[in-house]
């Protein structure tokens, strides 16, 4: 190992997974450092879960190589399994068993000795705030509590590396924040390396040290959230909605100071990337007033990972989510057809 270079927990090199003619993962390469929270961000069907399944020995790779905890996944799958904890996307704890029984059975599957098993279960129940629910049947728990139980279950054998596949999908905002805090706490207290997949940009932004954006089975960007946002031309996003639409607006908006791109959305809404949010906003208001148009709404914010996704893929992540769910957004009140 080179001095000063962080030790590597996961190394994935040119990994490919094909199902017949369909390529789910197409030659992805990345490395995860020890102690890092690494996020795989992408829409549903991007290949994130397939990638995590290949790293956790669940699915054999078509080609390429993955080394997890120093062990080759293809050659030493059992050694990899002992090193890792895995929380699948679905809630898979047994609803008929109690919280403690779920943890105990998984500890036995990892052959954790009795004394250590009891100590681990107590510590983990404390860490995920489920101590007083230890004797409760899992079916009586809320979704957030069940997700916390799953997290404890994945750590019951003290793994070095923790894989979580969309850990907060289906949770309410309060439970999501609770899970983020818990993961951060567990990472720090247990010296964990965490790899998680998510399609929530705020989750990736808040939780991850580095993010790999995956789209159509390919890695399109990889860096820290800050660096990824900085890589997008413009540091602010201005969203403005005009009362009357006009074909001239995109061209006129493009001429405002600092504007690098203008995206026309529906119902007179425009999204501008700009290097100087305050100046662009001032000019935009002046332009609206001088042309006798009315601004229905105006907001200024920093560049988000959604902008990063748009920048690298040409599409919005949230649009991809809607498409993946087959969901049609209902029209907002007052929206023009």
């Amino acid at each position: 190992m080179n001095a000063g270079k962080p030790a590597m927990a996961i190394s994935v090199e040119n990994i490919v997974k094909r199902y017949g003619d369909f390529t789910a993962v197409d030659g992805i390469t990345f490395h995860v450092n020890d102690g890092e929270i690494f996020g795989l961000l992408g829409p549903n069907g991007a290949g994130k879960s397939t990638l995590i399944r290949m790293m956790t020995t669940l699915t054999p790779a078509t080609s390429g190589r993955a080394v997890v905890g120093g062990h080759d996944v293809a050659r030493e799958p059992d050694a990899v399994r002992r090193t890792i904890g895995v929380i699948p996307q679905a809630l898979t704890s047994d609803i008929d068993l109690t919280v403690e029984e779920n943890l105990s059975i998984y500890a036995k599957l990892y052959e954790v000795p009795k004394a250590e098993r009891e100590r681990n279960i107590n510590d983990l129940l404390e860490a995920v705030d489920l101590t007083k629910w230890r004797g409760a049947q899992t079916k009586t728990l809320s979704g957030g509590m069940r997700r916390r139980l799953e997290i404890a279950r994945g750590l019951v054998h003290n793994p070095r590396i923790f894989f979580l596949d969309e850990p907060t999908t289906g949770l309410d905002p309060v439970s999501r924040v609770a899970v983020w805090e818990m993961l951060n706490h567990l990472k720090n207290t247990r010296s964990l390396t965490i790899l998680l997949t998510t399609h929530y940009m705020d989750e990736a932004d808040r939780l991850c040290d580095r993010i790999a954006i995956v789209d159509h089975g390919k890695l399109v960007a990889l860096d820290s959230p800050m660096a990824l946002k900085a890589s997008v031309p413009g540091t602010n996003v201005v969203e403005a909605q005009f009362a009357q639409e006009s074909a001239e607006w995109p061209a006129r908006l493009k001429q405002l100071s600092g504007v690098t791109s203008v995206e026309s959305q529906s119902a007179g809404m425009y999204r501008l990337l700009t290097s100087d949010g305050s100046l662009t906003t001032t000019q935009l208001v002046e332009m609206a007033v001088s042309s006798g148009n009315t601004l229905k709404s105006l907001s200024v914010q920093n560049t988000t990972l959604d902008d990063v996704f748009v920048h690298f893929t040409g599409r919005q992540l949230r649009d991809e989510q809607v498409k993946a769910l087959g969901f049609v957004m209902p029209p907002r009140p007052g929206m023009q057809p």
Binding site: L58, R81, I84, P88, Q89, A90, T92, Y106, L109, Y110
Partner: peptide, 13 residues
């Protein structure tokens, strides 16, 4: 179908 077996398969069993 519920993914319980997936949970078993990631253990060293």
């Amino acid at each position: 179908a519920r993914g319980v077996h997936e949970g078993y398969l990631v253990t060293p069993i």
